[in-house]
Simulated scan of single mutants.
Amino acid sequence: MTAPTAYGDSPLPDAALLSPGTHTYRLEGLVQRYHVHGSGPVCVALPGGPGIFWEYLRMPLLEEHLTMVYVEPVGTAEDSRLASHPHGYTRERYSAFLEALIDRLGVPEVHLLGHSHGAFVAAYHAVHRPEQLAGVVLYEGAPVTGPEHGAEAARMVEAFAAEHAGHPGLPGVMAAFGAMSAMGDDEQTVAVAKGVLPSYFADYWGNEERFAPLRDTIRATYISGLDEDLTPDVVDDRAALSALTVPALVVVGRHDVICGMRWGLELDELIPDSRLLVLENSGHMGHIEEPEAFAGAVRDFVRRPTGRGPAHS
């Protein structure tokens, strides 16, 4: 994979590459965007999905202490799509593009934060390309996908349904989960993402006035999760994470139905140099539900990235 080049006749000065705002360059014929906010040590943030646009991951409290570089992964925008789209977006491809982006930033090392699917990519990158990482934040991730992960998610969704039986919003959430396996285009992906969102919070309906604006603004692209040859990009990182050399902060919400407590505890046990943050009043969106606790733990991890033991909870 070739090195990225900036638009224009000459490379941008290093300081400009981390200036606030949206940055765009081409790599391997695709457009790569990233969005910079805040100041301080550099933290590169990967959104979930795959295919969810980055805006939901904005972390204003962290931006007060860190230079947050929010990545718009290839495949998300129309001008960043592979010829094989919606297929071909493996963790290896995401990691290779991420390596080029970090190289481009021109800083000695960065912290890497991945949320949901972004946490799977961040774990892969920390295992295979750790050289430029000072630490990694695995935020609502898991060590595996496939049937084992699916069965646990189904169990948690059933528990959510039982807890909210009779709520007028529940049928819509369950219908969205039922439609997830049949997604095949961007419109369907947006509908499913918005439909399931109440289950991604500890108490969405009790705080609907606060959380509904996020639901209204979700943008998403359909990405299949298959390689170009239609092979599933299945994850089993248990052995690899046991040998991880990068300090890690594992963040999990007590009420997360998708990548919940079972997986957060397992990640923390697997990784030799990890801290664990359990957000007691959060689901899958702790940076929105408990922003102070989340930002405080990540900030402290960046300042003191070594040493095992619990973070704030």
Rank of each mutant, 00 (worst) to 15 (best):
I52M: 15
D233Q: 11
G88E: 03
E187C: 04
A119N: 12
S199D: 09
T217F: 08
E228D: 15
T5D: 01
A123W: 07
E209R: 09
A311K: 07
R33P: 02
H117L: 10
A175D: 14
E78H: 08
G38L: 08
V196K: 02
R33G: 05
A6W: 10
R58P: 00
L197E: 12
G118M: 12
R238M: 13
D103R: 12
E290T: 12
A248S: 15
S39K: 13
D186I: 08
A16T: 07
A202H: 15
E290L: 07
R219M: 10
P143Y: 07
A191F: 02
A96H: 04
G88L: 02
F160Y: 15
V257L: 10
D256P: 13
A293P: 05
H87K: 06
G309I: 07
G172T: 14
M174Y: 05
C43N: 09
L27K: 05
V71T: 07
D14F: 02
P73N: 09
V71W: 11
A159V: 05
E63I: 04
F120W: 14
V190H: 00
E158P: 03
H85S: 10
L241D: 01
L270K: 10
Y34M: 10
Q32P: 06
R304S: 09
R58Q: 07
A134R: 13
L82C: 09
D227M: 04
L57A: 10
A134S: 15
A96F: 00
E140W: 07
S10V: 12
P130H: 00
V302H: 01
Y25N: 07
R304T: 11
A122R: 00
